[in-house]
Design a protein around this nucleic acid. Structure first.
Lengths: 225, 225
DNA sequence: CAGCATGACTCTGTATACAGAACCGAAGAG
DNA sequence: CTCTTCGGTTCTGTATACAGAGTCATGCTG
C-alpha cells in the first residue's frame, strides 16, 4: 500500500476516534517522523483530510483538528437529511426486496444482538444497512456524498454514549425503513428516515450539551467549588 | 498565490471548458513543464481535482479526464435535486425578503438581459441567485455540497447550447423560486426548484443524446454516406 | 507470419534539500 | 511596567533527485 494512503488512514482513524484533540496543530515534520515517512506523502494525506473537512486549514497555514459544535452538527444533519431521504426514495424504487427483508429481521432481533455482541455488533448491522441502501440506490455520486457526511457523523457518534434504550428505538426506526424500502414505499421510507434522523440528532445534541457544560465547569467553575 | 493553487485553477478551468479532451492522460511531468512549476505542487492540484471527481484515477495510476454520459449526469442530478430542494426549503425559512425580491425582478427582465448582454449576462444573474440561496441557507456544509455538484454540472452546461427559449423558460422558473423564497413558502420553493431541475436535466440530456449520435456517426457511419 | 520474451524508456511514488515567511521570545525604550 | 522591535527558530511551500513498477517496442523463436 502507498505510504500516503497509510498516513491518510492512520490520521483519519486518530481524528475520528478523538485520539487527536481538537485544536491540535498538525505539524507536518512531527507527523512525518511519527509515522516514519517523509513529508511528501504526509502532505498528500493532510490535503485529503482538509478537503474532507476533517482538518481545518481556514485560519493559518498549519492545519488543526476542528472541534464539534451543536451548530456544526445541526448543519451536517441538514445536508444528511436531504441526502438520506432522497436515497430512501430511490432505494425503495430499485431495491432487491430480499435484502431489505433480511435487514428488517436483523433489526427485529436488535435486543438479542445488543445482549450478545454489545453496541459494536449493533453498529455492524447499521453498517450493513448503510451499504445496502447505497447499493440499492446504485448512484456513485450519491454514495460519495453520503459517505462524506457520514464521516463527520461518525466522529460525533463516537462522542455520544448511546444508551441501550436509544439504540433499541433506533433499531425499530431502522426496521420500519427496511420494511418500507422492501415494499417499495418510497414516501414511507423517507418519512421513517426523517424520524430516525430526528432521534439521532436529538441524542447527539443532548450529548454535546452535556459535554459543553462539563467543559465549561472544568474551565471556569473550579474556583467556585 | 501558491503555485499549487494556480495549477489547480488552471487545470480546473481547462477541464470545465473542455480544453482537455476526456480520456486524455494527465502526465505529471508534462503538465508541470507546461505550467512552469515542479511536480510537487502539481501533484497537489491533481489530487484535489481527483477528490472532486474532475479527474478519474480509478483505472490505472495516471489520471484521466472523465467523459460525461447521460447516466452520470442523471446521477449527479439525483444528488443535486436532494440538496437544492432542501436548500430552497431552508432558504425560504431564513431569507432576507428584499434580496429575493430584487432577484425576482432581475429574472423578470430576463428578455432584456439576454438581448443586451447575451447568455453570459443571464448566467451572471443565475450566479447571483445561487450565491443568494447559499447565503440565505447559511450552512457551510450545504454550501460545499452544492458547490461540489455544481462543478460537474457546469461542465455539462458548457456542452449544452442553451437556446434562448430554454433560457427564458428557466428565467421564469427561477423567478417563481425567488418569489416563493421571498414569501417564505418553502414547499412552493421546493416544488418550483424541482420543476426547474427537471427542465434543466431534460435540456442537458437532449444535448448529450445529440452529441452521442454525432460522435457515433463520425466514428462508424462515414462508410454509409 | 504469429507469439513471446527481453530490454529500454517513461511514469509515478518517495525522500531530501533549500528558500521564504511567519511566529516566538527577549531585550530595549518610553 | 508595558509596548515595540529585532533576531532566531521553526514551519510551510517548492524544487530536485532517485528508486521501483509498468509499458511499449523490437527482436527472436517456433
Amino acid at each position: 500500500m502507498l505510504a500516503s494512503d497509510r498516513a491518510y488512514e492512520a490520521l483519519r482513524d486518530d481524528i475520528l476516534n478523538w485520539r487527536i484533540a481538537p485544536g491540535t496543530a498538525l505539524s507536518e515534520t512531527e507527523l512525518a517522523v511519527r509515522l516514519g515517512i517523509s513529508r511528501t506523502p504526509l502532505r498528500a494525506a493532510l490535503a485529503r483530510l482538509a478537503l474532507e473537512g476533517l482538518v481545518d486549514t481556514s485560519r493559518g497555514r498549519t492545519g488543526v483538528v476542528p472541534d464539534i459544535s451543536v451548530e456544526s452538527i445541526a448543519q451536517q444533519f441538514e445536508v444528511r437529511e436531504a441526502l438520506e431521504l432522497q436515497a430512501a426514495r430511490l432505494a425503495a424504487r430499485r431495491r432487491d426486496p430480499a435484502v431489505f427483508q433480511e435487514l428488517a429481521e436483523s433489526f427485529a432481533h436488535a435486543t438479542e444482538t445488543l445482549a450478545e455482541g454489545g453496541t459494536e455488533a449493533y453498529y455492524a448491522v447499521v453498517a450493513r444497512f448503510d451499504a445496502a441502501m447505497e447499493d440499492a440506490v446504485g448512484n456513485p455520486a450519491m454514495r460519495s456524498a453520503l459517505e462524506s457526511v457520514r464521516i463527520h457523523l461518525f466522529r460525533a457518534r463516537r462522542l455520544a454514549q448511546d444508551n441501550p434504550e436509544r439504540l433499541l428505538r433506533a433499531a425499530a426506526e431502522h426496521r420500519l425503513i427496511c420494511e418500507a424500502v422492501r415494499d417499495g414505499d418510497g414516501e414511507l421510507a423517507a418519512s421513517a428516515t426523517a424520524v430516525h434522523l430526528h432521534g439521532s440528532l436529538t441524542t447527539i445534541t443532548d450529548t454535546l450539551h452535556d459535554r459543553t457544560e462539563l467543559a465549561d465547569r472544568t474551565t471556569h467553575g473550579t474556583e467556585g467549588t
